[in-house]
Design a protein around this nucleic acid. Structure first.
Lengths: 168, 168
DNA sequence: GACTTTTAGGTTGATATCAACATAATTATG
DNA sequence: CATAATTATGTTGATATCAACCTAAAAGTC
């Protein structure tokens, strides 16, 4: 009886492991966006986090963690440097003493504004490259598949009153 | 002039940001596979790393890092606990004194063998769920897209002599 | 051969991630 | 009301990730 995994199994796993592929894709994209956002001093994760806080009402920890498909303790840790830098302000929720509300500071809003064109440009470039590599596959399909993998933690934040351009 | 990002921009970014979707998918899958592999004491990343070392000739650091689309310093760090646990053995490359060769130990091979059925079952389950969620989209398409995003660090390790079942 | 450039890999530091465990507050139950 | 169950969040510890910086060895150049 064999005590080793056959090599062709290794090849099979290498070629089919969704988790590995997802990790690789995530890493590569993270590096790409990290580099692009470096001039404004944000990582891709920080950009996403700040953006997730740009809403009409400050959210608490759990819904943000859910939206980012991230463990809440990860979020707690990720908030710390942002708080230290004065980009995020956390406050007790008057409605629930166990809860904390997370809010962008003035500075947080500014950085996010500065980061947005960078995100746009980087995203457009990645889109274009994808289209070039796989012209017959639609972008919407990729989004749908990633969402299927990453869960439906997409909170319906737009079900409430819209801040929209009026908040500007 | 507005000093804030409009809320509907937040919604747009939330819904279209490939990087965010990839991170979310990667996190969710990682959690899923981490949990499944816990009984054999491996994380998803460790499984992938061990599997990537299951080959006819021990590779050095750089090609493994490339295959996993990972920074080589990450790989260095990831190897440490595995070495500590005696699953991986690293040795100087006689052909290049700067290089290290990475090899699975007996124990590493055993754990990998134990992990394989778990991987198969988990992967099959994820596949089935994907098919259920998005029946009209083919799995091969997802792989192709993730590969396009994650780069082509897929080393042609099968271009050499095949270990295959004969190595057992 | 001498010197320069490139390459292989490691350390350090900071951020990113999750499980296990813990405290405190809120809700549910009788 | 008292108690039990559930919920919100944080801390700790270990692994995961990458940039900046460093040393040593190999390859390239003259």
């Amino acid at each position: 009886m064999s005590k080793n995994v056959p090599f062709d199994t290794t090849i099979h796993v290498r070629d089919t492991c969704l988790c590995l592929h997802a990790q690789r894709a995530a890493r590569a994209l993270a590096r790409r966006f990290d580099e692009a956002l470096r001039p404004v001093g944000l990582t891709n994760g920080q950009f996403s986090l700040l953006m997730s806080l740009n809403r009409p009402h400050p959210p608490s920890v759990a819904p943000v963690a859910r939206l980012l498909a991230m463990d809440r303790t990860t979020l707690t840790a990720a908030l710390k440097p942002l708080e230290r830098r004065g980009l995020v302000i956390t406050e007790p929720d008057p409605k629930d003493r166990r809860s904390r509300l997370l809010r962008l500071s003035e500075k947080g809003h500014e950085i996010l504004l500065a980061a947005l064109p960078i995100w746009r440009a980087t995203h457009a470039a990645v889109d274009a490259e994808m289209q070039e590599d796989l012209p017959e596959i639609r972008q919407g399909d990729l989004q749908a598949m990633l969402v299927a993998l990453g869960g439906t933690g997409m909170e319906r934040v737009n079900s409430g009153p819209r801040a929209g351009p009026e908040a500007a």
